[in-house]
Design a protein around this nucleic acid. Structure first.
Lengths: 136, 136, 136, 136
DNA sequence: GTGGTCTAGACCACA
DNA sequence: GTGGTCTAGACCACG
């Protein structure tokens, strides 16, 4: 399996999310869309840290979270690799988190006084075109 | 105009949002849906703090944010009242915050491996039925 | 709800487990047995770190893991509290991890040439007497 | 005595254990169950490394550990052979390692909220059917 | 070379 | 005061 190329991740300083969060989101998205395929090796902690100009510990933290969530798996001394898909969370847990995400988004839409149709259309447009991995 | 009655706000300890955020979200939602009508008076800082069993500073902070966002207006010596609709945020600011909200929601959907159709349907359903104020 | 008293946790330097792991295991066990009851507040990150003579970051890491696993919940600015029990993992995930734990233990029993009866009796004895929380 | 045939060992990439550990566990288990009988010769370091597609150093390290533990013995210039049963570890050392294994397993059971009865039954079932070598 | 852990010290948001 | 994040630098096990 090939190592990933430069992994076009970018850290946006203006982004409200913490850096480690941006890394987690970015990599998770690339795995979900298949851009990072099963078994591919990720950039090394030190390598990605240097590429992004951040501290290796920050990358390590992001990688640890992705590993705990089951998206990556570590092979000692070799590196980190994209793990096979699996349903890690119970239905209730997923439902709970999804509810929270929906509530948060709806509150923001209300706060910004965005038209419901526009909000729905935007979400629809963003989600279409994403190729999801089949869950095991 | 009548003062609001008890203002059925509830602070959920299991909620991931900070308390001040829960207050802001709750009041904003009630204004947006018309449950809190234009000109109605809000509970005093001390009164609401006591009712919710929280620190008055936290209520004051929430009220300040709602006032800054244009949802409430202060009448010196009388208290806080629901303000007439207006557009406080610049187009850029609204667009930026909306983009962030969309990004956050999409990432959550991906992380939870929720089907795009289901996510869109859910947002649509939650937003319908909310009566929005007309923006100025 | 009362704050926990000294929380008799001890860090064993001779223990093969990393310090943060010992904290996670210790607290999880106390929650499972009910010694730390629902809603109780945990020692502060800095407080526990000082009590154990370790770095606050190490405690924070352990707390973060327990929070991610659903045993604790954070209330911003207030502290960490024992969360209500819930089944966070899917049946497959729990089964997978349990299989791994069994395999690891069996391998160790074989390596040490411990009599099967002795191993079973020991596990039985250790698990009995633990009062488990009822899952929601 | 015959050399072992292919030694049906498999390295599972999804396994959390380091590769050397998988080899040690696998061979030790086969000796304990009698699948690898006293006096049988093991595959050469290079041969096994090639068969498994891993680094020869890793195989060498695993063999060294098994030799140190008394499961294998080296006959200069001939290769490695399954050694006669003996008790290498001191009582204290065995007891300490066994305690650690028990502790680890119990913590996993608690973390996964597995019923004690189920855990005991599973360990019992896994250990029965394994034929143990008599200790010297 | 790889990831994993720990320490030290700083800054932030929240109450 | 609380937890959360980031940086910096060190040491370890594994391959």
């Amino acid at each position: 399996m090939p190592r990933t190329q430069a992994l076009m991740l970018e850290i946006a300083t203006g982004d409200a999310r913490p850096i480690s969060r941006q890394i987690v989101d970015g990599i998770r998205m690339r795995i979900a869309t298949g851009e990072l395929a099963l078994g591919m090796q990720l950039p090394s902690v030190r390598g990605l840290a240097q590429q992004l100009g951040i501290n290796p510990n920050t990358v390590a933290k992001a990688y640890a979270e992705l590993t705990a969530e089951g998206w990556l798996e570590s092979r000692q001394g070799l590196g980190l690799f994209v793990a096979p898909p699996r349903q890690r969370l119970s239905a209730e847990e997923r439902s709970k988190r999804f509810d929270e995400a929906v509530t948060r988004f709806v509150h923001e839409v209300v706060a910004l006084d965005v038209a419901p149709d526009e909000a729905v259309a935007r979400i629809d447009s963003e989600l279409q075109g994403l190729a999801f991995r089949k869950s095991a």
